[in-house]
């Protein structure tokens, strides 16, 4: 990119393909990986060679081979089976946490902004309060208060990422509130809630969807970090973070058991970020690159 690029004629319009539809090759790659992960999660019981929990103490720390495609871990459990079942847990918790953040963040922000000045101020203060604690720490404190397990982890990760949705929704709502169509709806006697959900929400949706694409991989990572800390989903649930936590203690003898979930996590988060960035560029061309 040069400092002052001369304005050139727009490139000739090409036939839309799947690649251009999602915003270019990087995000097409992202889409492929995400689709693969979702496929594994859905068909985990069919793909798995063995029961993910079945221990075989005679075949511990086996390297990858024909019997176990990705080897076995320190308890002789099949790594590949745990990986595809782990995809289930990690993706499900990720989506659920995202949903909590989206509904609570966007919903509360919308209601607070619509309700008037003081609710809005109180809500802003609440969001600022949450933002003063850096992500992991907030989630840690919340998990402690809510206890460990799947539902508390979903709630904790959701609440940790709530501020971003709240900020985006509040600012978009404030901008839209000054727009002509909202004022004319007010004049016509529409209630605040009706304006919020019927008139403004469709305009906020685009921003929320692109933000969701960026937040989802972070939710998945946060779940893994919590599980790695021993505060995540219960020990008998195979999530990627739990696998990483287990395998990291035996990394010398069974590096494959650590490598598999780590690579799965890295690839999935990278793919989701690329896909999210592509979608964002496609649907929100004003903001060109990944924004925080």
């Amino acid at each position: 990119m040069t400092e002052a690029a001369p304005r050139t004629a727009p490139p000739p319009r090409r036939e839309p393909t799947l690649v251009t539809a999602v915003g270019g090759w990087p995000s097409a790659f992202g889409l492929a990986i995400v689709a693969l992960a979702v496929f594994c999660a859905i068909f985990a019981p069919l793909l798995a060679q063995a029961d993910p929990q079945a221990q075989n103490l005679l075949a511990r720390n086996r390297p990858p081979g024909a019997a176990a495609w990705l080897g076995t871990d320190h308890l002789g459990r099949d790594v590949f089976s745990r990986l595809v079942h782990g995809a289930r847990v990690s993706l499900a918790v990720g989506f659920a946490g995202l949903l909590v953040a989206l509904v609570l963040g966007a919903g509360l922000a919308g209601l607070a902004v619509a309700a008037g000045r003081w609710p809005r101020r109180a809500f802003t203060a609440f969001v600022d309060l949450l933002r003063a604690l850096p992500g992991v720490l907030l989630a840690l404190v919340l998990v402690v208060a809510l206890g460990s397990g799947t539902v508390p982890v979903i709630l904790a990760t959701g609440i940790s990422f709530l501020p971003m949705f709240a900020v985006v929704t509040a600012s978009t709502y404030e901008r839209e509130a000054r727009a002509g169509y909202v004022r004319s709806a007010l004049v016509l006697g529409a209630g605040r809630l009706r304006i919020l959900f019927v008139h403004v929400l469709p305009n906020v949706l685009g921003a929320l969807v692109t933000l969701s694409a960026i937040i989802l991989p972070r939710v998945i990572t946060l779940e893994s970090v919590l599980s790695f800390f021993g505060l995540g989903v219960s020990p008998d649930t195979p999530s990627w973070g739990r696998m990483i936590a287990d395998a990291s203690r035996f990394a010398e003898r069974a590096p494959h058991a650590l490598a598999a979930p780590t690579l799965a996590l890295v690839l999935t988060t990278l793919a989701m970020a690329l896909l999210g960035d592509g979608l964002r560029r496609r649907f929100d061309p004003l903001r060109r690159s990944l924004a925080r």
């Binding site: 991989p217 990483i244 890295v266 960035d277």
Partner: peptide
């Protein structure tokens, strides 16, 4: 570098480095 820091969390980078 920007995409790296956004897309790959420090947790994953650290694990990858260790591996």
């Amino acid at each position: 570098l920007n995409v790296w820091s956004i897309a790959i969390p420090t947790f994953c980078v650290g694990l990858g480095l260790i591996l």
